[in-house]
Structures are given as C-alpha cells and as structure tokens.
Amino acid sequence: MAVESFSSASVTELVPRQSSRRSHRLFVALQKEIVLGVLPPEKALTELDLAQRFQCSQGTVREALMQLNEEGLVKRLPNRGTHVAPCNADDARALLQLRREVECSHLDRVMARADAALHDDLHDLLNAMRNAARDRDEYLLSVHDRAFHTRLFEAADLPLVAPILTRCLIHNHRYKILNSQPNRALEETAERHVPILGALEARDVAKLHDLLSHHISTIVDFGPDLTDSGTTE
C-alpha cells in the first residue's frame, strides 16, 4: 500500500507540515496509529519494515520518525533503535497540569486580541468536531479538538510557548484514547467546547478561565482519573 493512499488528504492537510509532503503523509499516518494504539507503547519500529510497508524510501521513514521523536511519540536511542513512546499516568498527569497552566494563565492576552476571525475559526472547528464525532472518527475528532485549543491560544501571541501546548495536547489525547472505555461519547466531547465559545464571545475573562480550567481538568471524565483529589481549580 503506497503511503499516499494510507492517510486521507484532508487529515494530512489539517496537521501542520514541517517536512516534505511524502514524509509528512507518513508522519500523520504513524501519528494516527500511535494515538489510537494500533502501534502500542514500547513497540519496536524499524526503518526497513516501515519503508516496505508504506512503499517509500528509508530516508522518508527516517524523516517521519525524526518528527515523531520531536513530538515525543517515539524514542530513538543509539544502538537501541526506535520504539513507540510509553504512555503512563504520571506523564499524563504532569502534562495535563502543564497544559492547564499554559492555556489558563494568558487569557487576558487572548481576550485583548480576540477578533471576528478567531470566533469564526473556532466555530468552524467546533462544527468539524461535531461532524467527526457523528462519523465516529475519534482520531479526526482529536485533530480538530487540538486545533481548537491551539487556535485559541494563538491569540495570546506567545509563539515560543505554543509548541509546549502542542506537545501537551497530543499526549493528553493519546492517553485519553488509549485508556477510555470503548464507545465513548464522542458527540459529548465536541459539545464540551460550546461554553468556552460562549464565554469568549461574552468577553468574560474570569468565566473563560473557570470554564477552560474545568474543561482541561475534566478531560479525564472520559477516561481514568488523573487528578489527585478529583476536584478542579
């Protein structure tokens, strides 16, 4: 199976590209399999096997694996090869707390820069989440969900901080998906973003802070409890 046919163009285009088109398609295909658990934690990956599977060069595979390594989804160690990264509760808890700190500490900057384009983009992403949920496409739902939070934070205009949030988001979603019960309420996941939009449109920073903090803390409503006390801030 050629890599071009493995990942749909629409999904590939939604994920920011940092490499050649061919390696980016492979990166997205492997990201999807890691996030959904098709490639489980600690699974060994070899460039030769992946090149044969996706009918591409080992150079293309190497480039995709390097990007996955930067995202923290694989571990590439000298003399030990490449393995899918672990996915444990301690890491997930730390990343969840870090994500909440990043997203909720700069909402005054977000509100000051919020404009019609931001509102339109967030509404479009909400509708995209709803469509993915109705199609039972959990990976596509996670892509749009991550894009929603990334787009909201972009308004803070803190480009050096944004990659930290991006990393937190991918690992939060991976942990949730790998540990959630089957047949999770995907449509409810999408609708959880509606109150956030309402507070943003009302230009209520305090309410937006409370809603977003609660939203992040209770991401585990659909998976294992990662909070220490079961309460939110």
Results as ranks from 00 to 15, higher is better:
40 P>T: 10
70 E>K: 15
164 I>Q: 09
119 H>P: 00
91 D>L: 13
27 F>Y: 15
16 P>Q: 03
183 N>K: 10
86 P>G: 07
165 L>H: 09
231 T>F: 09
26 L>D: 01
213 S>F: 08
154 E>H: 14
41 P>S: 12
210 D>R: 15
208 L>I: 07
232 T>L: 07
126 L>C: 09
89 A>H: 08
135 D>L: 09
56 C>H: 03
174 R>K: 13
183 N>Y: 05
228 D>A: 13
152 L>W: 04
32 K>M: 13
83 H>L: 13
197 L>H: 13
99 R>S: 05
102 V>N: 01
29 A>L: 06
85 A>S: 15
167 R>W: 04
100 R>I: 04
36 L>E: 09
229 S>W: 05
173 H>M: 14
78 P>L: 12
1 M>R: 15
100 R>V: 03
59 G>R: 08
222 F>N: 05
191 E>P: 00
128 A>H: 04
16 P>M: 04
219 I>Q: 11
187 E>L: 12
87 C>R: 01
38 V>I: 15
73 L>S: 04
30 L>N: 03
55 Q>L: 14
148 F>E: 05
125 L>S: 06
2 A>C: 06
233 E>N: 13
171 H>Y: 02
68 L>T: 06
30 L>F: 04
63 E>T: 10
208 L>M: 06
204 D>T: 02
91 D>I: 09
178 L>I: 06
214 H>L: 12
45 L>Q: 04
66 M>G: 09
184 R>A: 11
22 R>P: 00
25 R>N: 14
89 A>R: 13
29 A>W: 02
157 D>C: 11
213 S>C: 13
60 T>Q: 08
152 L>N: 07
32 K>V: 03
160 L>Y: 12
227 T>A: 10
132 A>H: 02
205 V>S: 04
17 R>N: 05
131 N>V: 11
183 N>H: 12
123 H>R: 15
27 F>Q: 08
226 L>V: 07
37 G>F: 01
67 Q>T: 12
181 Q>C: 09
36 L>A: 04
22 R>Y: 02
231 T>W: 06
225 D>S: 09
54 F>I: 04
38 V>N: 11
56 C>I: 11
150 T>L: 11
148 F>G: 03
111 M>D: 04
76 R>P: 00
165 L>F: 05
167 R>Y: 06
151 R>V: 11
49 D>R: 07
118 L>V: 10
8 S>G: 07
134 R>A: 11
127 N>V: 06
150 T>A: 14
43 K>L: 11
111 M>P: 01
5 S>F: 11
209 H>Y: 10
151 R>N: 10
66 M>E: 14
167 R>H: 10
21 R>Y: 08
117 A>E: 15
178 L>N: 05
208 L>Y: 01
191 E>F: 05
106 H>A: 08
84 V>D: 02
135 D>M: 07
219 I>E: 10
151 R>L: 08
125 L>M: 07
21 R>A: 15
62 R>E: 13
66 M>Y: 10
122 L>D: 11
164 I>T: 14
98 L>Y: 01
178 L>M: 11
1 M>W: 10
174 R>Q: 14
134 R>Y: 02
129 M>Q: 02
192 R>W: 07
205 V>E: 09
77 L>E: 15
100 R>F: 00
144 H>P: 01
66 M>F: 11
184 R>S: 13
202 A>D: 06
37 G>I: 05
182 P>N: 14
84 V>E: 02
112 A>W: 07
212 L>R: 06
146 R>A: 14
115 D>H: 01
164 I>V: 13
165 L>I: 12
